[in-house]
Nucleic acid binder design. Structure first.
Length: 261
DNA sequence: GCATATGTTATGAA
DNA sequence: TTTCATAACATATG
């Protein structure tokens, strides 16, 4: 599930649920989601700490405390929730933080492809530095720099976190559809106007998706037509094409997004 | 059993 | 050097 808009929603969960509170208990129910830290050390290092303001870069979520910083990456199936008191534990609730007033924060994850890290603030900064600029806030110049020198197919570049941070498979398809660019177009063959359209489409798509807390599968969006046979383009009615681009399942409109380069 | 799935990463080939 | 496909990770669903 998680791409930038989802992670942004998890940041809000963290801010509402945990910011300013003291950690009372750390319950690691499946240490398979811990990276570079074991359950006893996580417990030791977090117990008694106070959560500061969380921040996000790309698909990474950072939860600084008055000690170490907790890093979250949600992989394909992770989520963060602040359940009502008494909400029974779900099968995939892997880590539960309980705060001083019994408020709970749960990291839930079916597939355990990623998970939690514990880092000092400098290491957290290094994680950010390894990525491209955040897709939600990058301006036209930063976007230009992210594409410059890249010859890969545009979808591969958009989803390459070291070029631009935050876009995943659904968002890349949605943005390219809005910008009327075929996902397999060579990045270095795009015109300035193509890149302008692409940046504008990215901004609009991200703003709306962040507002929705996800990439919304609305009928007016491409994402609303990914599943099922014979789906048609919500803009022109042409039957959508499906294939594999940059190793991922890809949907595009053969009429709105011509392949020629 | 097979294919698919919104994540990243290592590997070997082109 | 860059890019690509592929497999792998762990699990669920159709």
């Amino acid at each position: 599930m998680p791409e930038l808009p989802d992670v942004e929603a998890f940041r809000e969960v963290l801010a509402d649920c945990a910011q300013g509170r003291l950690v009372r208990r750390v319950d690691v129910r499946d240490s398979g989601v811990l990276n570079g830290v074991d359950a006893p050390r996580l417990r030791r290092e977090l117990a008694g700490r106070r959560l500061a303001a969380p921040y996000r870069h790309g698909k990474w979520l950072f939860a600084p405390t008055d000690g170490p910083t907790v890093l979250f990456h949600f992989g394909m199936t992770g989520s963060l929730l602040c359940p009502e008191p008494g909400e029974p534990l779900a099968r995939h609730d892997r880590v539960v933080l309980t705060f001083a007033d019994e408020v709970e924060l749960r990291y839930r994850d079916q597939r355990k492809l990623k998970g939690l890290w514990l880092a000092d603030p400098a290491t957290a900064d290094r994680t950010v530095a390894e990525e491209g600029p955040d897709a939600l806030t990058v301006g036209r110049k930063g976007f230009e720099a992210a594409l410059t020198g890249r010859r890969a197919r545009i979808k591969a570049v958009l989803t390459d976190q070291s070029a631009l941070a935050g876009l995943g498979n659904l968002l890349a398809d949605e943005i390219l559809w809005r910008a009327r660019l075929h996902p397999a177009r060579a990045t270095d063959h795009l015109s300035r106007e193509d890149r302008d359209r692409l940046h504008r489409a990215m901004r609009r798509t991200l703003r709306e998706a962040v507002r929705a807390g996800r990439v919304p599968p609305r009928p007016s969006w491409l994402t609303g037509h990914r599943d099922g046979e014979g789906e048609t383009c919500p803009r022109c009615g042409t039957e959508l094409s499906r294939g594999r681009v940059a190793g991922r399942g890809t949907v595009w409109c053969p009429h709105c997004q011509p392949a020629d380069d």
